[in-house]
């Protein structure tokens, strides 16, 4: 499902975009690339995974995004894989 087309998730996009503003430049840059690529075309599964990732502390998040640490959480793995390929 396209998130932008789904009115229930629409305001969520703006919030998710803002929550990608982080304390570390490394994360800002990765998420900037992510949004440049997906635009408003974010499916709900990815939005859910992103929301969970963004709740992490910055250093922990960077370790996961950079591949320095791995997670066995199946909901986060596909998104982390995408972020690492950007």
């Amino acid at each position: 499902m396209n998130a932008a087309a789904e009115s229930a998730i629409d305001p969520r996009l703006g919030r998710l975009r803002w929550h990608c503003r982080r304390a570390l430049l490394e994360l800002d840059l990765v998420f900037q690339r992510f949004w440049d690529k997906v635009g408003d075309d974010l499916d709900i599964e990815t939005a859910d995974a992103l929301e969970r990732l963004l709740a992490l502390e910055d250093h922990d998040l960077w370790y996961l995004v950079s591949g320095r640490e791995e997670t066995d959480d199946p909901q986060l793995q596909p998104l982390l894989y995408r972020l690492r390929q950007l």
Binding site: R21, R22, A23, L24, L25, E57, D58, H59
Partner: peptide, 12 residues
């Protein structure tokens, strides 16, 4: 604050 306090740039 524009962001949650513990996400301020002091973190870096």
């Amino acid at each position: 604050s524009k962001v949650f306090p513990t996400r301020s740039h002091t973190v870096a």
